[in-house]
Computed example of a mutant assay.
Amino acid sequence: MITYQEHRLRTLVEGGRWPELLAAYRRARAAAVAQVGEERAAAETAPLGHLIAYSAPPELAVRLFGPDGGPGTAAGVADHDAGPLWEVLATRHSWLRLAPLLGPAPVRRLVAHTRVLVGEDLSYGAEPDPEGVPLVLEPWESAGWGENSRVRDYLPRGGSRSAVLSLPATREGLGPVLLPAPAGRLRGQRATRALAALAEWAEVVCVRGPAPEAAARLTAARRVTGGYLPFAIACPALLQAGAADRTRGSADGRLALWRALGAMAGGDGPDRAGVNALVARMRCFTWCDPADGLRHLHLAMEDPATGLSWAVSGSDEP
C-alpha cells in the first residue's frame, strides 16, 4: 500500500521539485534526530537523501550536507542508504561542477577522492590532501580493476551495484605450496594497526621473515593452493575491504590503504615517494582457504628492505 507521504514525494521527484524535496528531507531528519537520535535518523531519511543526491542539480544536492537548514538537518559522512550519500553525489558530477559548491571539509575531501577513483586527475585542480594522499591515481592503483568498478554504481531510486572483489578471486595462476613453519609474531607495529583498520573483519599479523611465513601464521593448513602476484592485482581487494560496509565508500578505502602503506614504508604518513618505492619492491603472496565465502581476502606482503611481512586474512561473511 502506497502511503500519502510516499505518493507526495514521488510526485515531487517526477516534477523535479527539488527545493521542496530538500525541505522535506530536512524536516524529516531534524524531527527524527529529536525523537530517535542521530544514527537512526540518518537511516530513516537516507532513502530520500539518496534520491536528492542522485538526481537533483548539484547546486541543490550539495545542500544535503550544508548547515543552513538548522540543527539536525545536515547529512554527515556516515549518512547512507545503498552507500554514503556523499559517494552517490560524487558519482553524478565532475569535480569542476562540485568544487565551488561543497562546503564541509570532511565531505569535500571524500568527494574529491571519489572523483579521483572514477578517473579524474585533481592534482592541479584541488587543494592538497591534508595527509598527502595524491589526487591522481598511481599506476598500481588503476591496473588491477575492471572497467568502471572502482566505485559503486548507484541506481536512481536507491540501491547500487558493485564488483565483488576477493583475493584470490580464482585459482588460476596458483598451485600447490608447502608453507614453512610460521615466523614469530611481532607486536606493536603501527602498520599492523593500520591494516587492521582497513579490513576490520580480517586478522592481521606482522612477522620478521618472508611472506609465506606470515601466511603460515593465519592458516592451519601447511599445504595450500597459493602463489605470488603483483601488488597491483591485490590493490582492488584491499581497497574494497576498506569500503565493505555501506557506511563507507571507496574513498574511505583508498585513504585507509594509503595510511597502511605509509606505515609499512616507515613514514609518519602516506608519503607518495615512500609508498611508491614500497609497492615497487614488495613481494605479495596469496592463498586459498576451503572455507572461503563470497568475499574473502588472503594476502601476505613482504618488504625485502626491512625483512618484515604482514599477512591479512579473513572473510566479511559469517
Rank of each mutant, 00 (worst) to 15 (best):
T3N: 02
Y4C: 00
E6N: 05
R8A: 15
V13Q: 11
V13W: 12
G15R: 11
W18V: 00
W18Y: 06
A23R: 14
A24K: 10
R27H: 13
R29D: 08
V33T: 10
V33A: 11
R40Q: 13
A43V: 09
T45A: 10
A46R: 02
P47C: 03
G49C: 02
H50D: 09
A56P: 01
A56G: 05
A61K: 02
V62L: 02
V62D: 04
V62C: 03
R63I: 00
L64T: 13
F65S: 07
F65T: 05
D68T: 15
G69I: 07
G70T: 10
P71A: 14
P71L: 12
A74S: 12
V77W: 01
H80P: 02
D81W: 14
A82M: 09
G83I: 14
P84I: 06
A90Q: 07
T91W: 04
H93E: 04
S94Y: 03
W95Q: 11
L96D: 14
R97P: 10
L98E: 08
L101T: 01
L102F: 04
L102G: 04
V107H: 11
R108A: 03
A112E: 04
R115W: 06
V116K: 10
G119D: 07
P128K: 01
D129H: 14
P134Q: 01
V136W: 12
E138W: 03
P139G: 04
E141L: 07
E141S: 01
S142V: 11
S142R: 13
G146Y: 07
E147A: 12
S149V: 00
P156Q: 03
P156K: 00
G159L: 05
R161Q: 12
A163H: 01
V164I: 15
L167I: 07
P168D: 11
A169D: 11
T170G: 07
G173A: 07
G175D: 08
L178Q: 14
P180V: 10
P180D: 13
P180M: 08
A183G: 11
G184S: 14
R185K: 09
Q189K: 12
A199S: 13
A202N: 06
E203T: 15
A215G: 02
T219G: 05
A220I: 00
V224S: 09
T225S: 13
G227D: 10
Y228G: 07
Y228W: 13
P230G: 04
F231W: 11
F231H: 08
I233K: 14
P236D: 05
A237R: 05
L239Y: 06
L239G: 02
D245L: 15
T247V: 09
G249W: 03
D252F: 02
G253T: 03
L255Y: 06
R259N: 06
R259I: 12
R259Y: 04
R259P: 01
L261I: 01
G262E: 09
A263F: 04
M264R: 09
G267I: 00
R272Q: 14
V279G: 05
W287I: 11
A291K: 13
D292P: 12
L294C: 04
R295P: 00
H296T: 00
L297P: 02
L297A: 07
H298S: 09
L299R: 13
M301Q: 05
P304N: 08
A305R: 15
A305D: 15
T306F: 12
G307D: 13
A311G: 08
V312Y: 11
S315H: 07
